[in-house]
C-alpha cells in the first residue's frame, strides 16, 4: 500500500506547469492537484506515474469568481469552497447542496472541482453538474489554450478530451436565471460513498408552465448526460408530481446502465426513476 517511486515537480506558475507537462507527460507524467483520487490509485498501484507535476503552489489557479454571467473555477479550487454558496443566486445554492454529497469533509478539504472533471469518474457529482448546466472547460498546454464544451468533454469512463500535455486550468459554469429552480438527488449505499445514481434538474416556471427544463443523470452510464426524452415531457407542462413521475420513467427507460457485481442494470434503472423524480420535486420546491 505504498505508492511507487516518482519524481516530484512543484510548479509555481501555469507556464511552468505546462512546460513541465510537455516534457514529462510522454514519460508517464501526470498533474496532481488535490490528489484525493490519484493518491489512492497510486497506493493501490493502479496508477504508476513516473512524474507528478504539482500545481498546488500556483496562486492564480485558486481563482473562484463571477464574471460576465458565469462562475470561473480555477484548477486548485477545493470542493470545500462550495459548501457555502459561492455566489448569491440559484447556482451558488445548488453547488452547496451538491458539495455536501461529495465524499467526506476531510476529502473535500483537499479534492478539487477541476480535478473531478479531469478524472471523469462516472459517479462524480461535479461531472454531472458540468454536463447538465453546460460548463466550458479551459485546457492549457505549451501549444496554447482551447475551450471545450462539456458535451464534448466526456469520452467514457475516466476518459476526457484532455490531451496528455494539457492541463484543465479552469471550468466555467453559466449562472442560473434568477427565477430558475434547481434540484439534486443522489443515492449511495453509505454516507460519502460513490453514487449508484444521481440526478440534477433545473427549470423555470413561467405562467405556471415549466420552461428550459434540464434533466441530467450521473453515476449510471459511463458518463453523465442530459436526457432529452425526459426534458421533452416537462417543457410547457405544469410542475406536478404526475408529470415528474412520467419524466422520471422516461429517463429510466432512456439510460443504458452500467452493471457491476452488486448492481444490476434493472436496479440502477429503478434508482434513476426515483432519483429524477426526487430531484424534480426538489427543484419544484426550490423557491427562495
Amino acid at each position: 500500500m505504498k505508492p511507487a517511486p516518482f519524481q516530484w515537480h512543484p510548479a509555481s506558475s501555469l507556464d511552468e506547469a505546462v512546460a513541465l507537462l510537455a516534457r514529462y507527460a510522454p514519460e508517464d507524467g501526470r498533474v496532481i492537484a488535490g490528489g484525493q483520487s490519484l493518491v489512492p490509485s497510486m497506493a493501490l498501484r493502479v496508477a504508476l506515474p513516473a512524474h507528478l507535476i504539482d500545481i498546488n503552489g500556483i496562486a492564480s489557479l485558486a481563482r473562484l469568481e463571477v464574471e460576465a454571467g458565469r462562475l470561473s473555477i480555477g484548477a486548485c479550487v477545493r470542493h470545500a469552497a462550495f459548501e457555502h454558496p459561492v455566489e448569491p443566486g440559484v447556482l451558488g445554492r445548488l453547488l452547496a447542496t451538491v458539495a455536501a454529497n461529495i465524499a467526506h469533509a476531510p476529502i473535500r478539504t483537499r479534492g478539487t472541482f477541476c480535478g473531478s472533471l479531469a478524472n471523469a469518474d462516472p459517479a462524480s457529482e461535479w461531472c454531472l453538474v458540468a454536463a447538465t448546466l453546460g460548463a466550458t472547460l479551459v485546457a492549457v498546454s505549451a501549444r496554447g489554450t482551447r475551450e471545450v464544451a462539456a458535451a464534448d468533454w466526456f469520452h467514457g469512463i475516466m476518459t476526457t478530451a484532455l490531451a496528455e500535455d494539457e492541463l484543465l486550468a479552469e471550468a466555467r459554469l453559466p449562472l442560473l436565471a434568477t427565477d430558475a429552480r434547481a434540484g439534486f438527488h443522489e443515492f449511495s449505499r453509505r454516507a460519502g460513498d460513490y453514487a449508484l445514481a444521481m440526478s440534477l434538474c433545473t427549470f423555470r416556471v413561467v405562467e405556471g408552465r415549466m420552461r428550459e427544463a434540464r434533466v441530467g443523470v450521473g453515476g449510471v452510464e459511463p458518463q453523465p448526460r442530459r436526457i432529452p426524452e425526459a426534458e421533452r415531457l416537462l417543457e410547457g407542462e405544469r410542475p406536478e408530481p404526475e408529470t415528474f413521475a412520467r419524466a422520471a420513467r422516461a429517463a429510466a427507460d432512456a439510460v443504458d446502465p452500467l452493471e457491476d457485481i452488486r448492481t444490476r442494470a434493472a436496479y440502477r434503472r429503478d434508482l434513476v426513476a426515483a432519483s429524477v423524480r426526487r430531484s424534480l420535486q426538489a427543484a419544484c420546491d426550490d423557491t427562495h
Partner: peptide, 12 residues
C-alpha cells in the same frame, strides 16, 4: 483543516 495524511505526500 482536517485532512487524510495518507492522501498527501510529505513534500506537499
Amino acid at each position: 483543516e482536517p485532512v487524510r495524511s495518507c492522501l498527501m505526500f510529505a513534500v506537499q
